[in-house]
Amino acid sequence: MQNYNLTHLEQLESEAIFILRETAAQFERPGLLFSGGKDSIVMAHLAAKAFSPAKIPFPFVHVDTGHNFPETIAFRDSFVKKTGVQLIVGYVQGSIDKGTAVEETGPNASRNALQSVTLLETIEKESLDACLGGGRRDEEKARAKERFFSHRDAFGQWDPKNQRPELWNLFNGRKSQGENFRIFPLSNWTEMDVWQYAKIENIELPNLYFTHEREVVDRNGSLLAVSEFVTPRDNESPKKETVRFRTIGDATCTGAVLSTASNLDEVIAEVAASRVTERGARADDRRSEAAMEDRKKQGYF
């Protein structure tokens, strides 16, 4: 008899496609949260596969902090053009101008937490009843207990102590008026799985993920790229380094790592040898032990 075994990547792919189709089937107006980072790119690639040869049956949603790497926006726009999906952008600046979000002040001010406000406003404005996110359970300990179908109440809040149990392949997306869901098709993927899958599927990724020279400052152990949003302070001396990014988020809090990895094979080798998690370089998670949990309860991705 033939060997009917799937590799781990084939199993993860099949599971993610199942979740994406289930989302389309169970919800009226889902959206795919697309940040231009590798996880959302892989998720978008899986969505294209799930519904081929039809177009992806839901819009992409980007919550724009205004503190972007220009490469990210360029990549986002060309990706959207190529796939022909609708792009909805929610601007954090818009929330600040309206007065629904207040800019942080102080030395480590960031717009990261404000994204939750803009996301919830976008969900309401666009009447989205489910948002697909690229979050993975291996990223952070509060995510380890996240469901594939994560229920949010009418205030967008996550209640980690009262989650619906998820059994087999049976996902319960039923909800009352005003409630919605966050859905994470990549829940069971690790950082390594994402890189390996990008490699075997030949997925194009922004060049920020590969080695390049860049002016950075060392701030609390994170190498932050010098830009219009991050200016060196008096006690900091910017240096040119050979770096790449392991995750891409808001430019004010995404740290680079020293690296010479110029292609996916080299990145995979580097990740395999790495002794620090990818979020180790993210200042937003370092604020406190439960930083991620607190943000998620308030409606974060």
Partner: peptide, 9 residues
């Protein structure tokens, strides 16, 4: 380096 092509779950 490529053994992941053959890993299962």
């Amino acid at each position: 380096q490529n053994n992941y092509l053959d890993m299962d779950l």
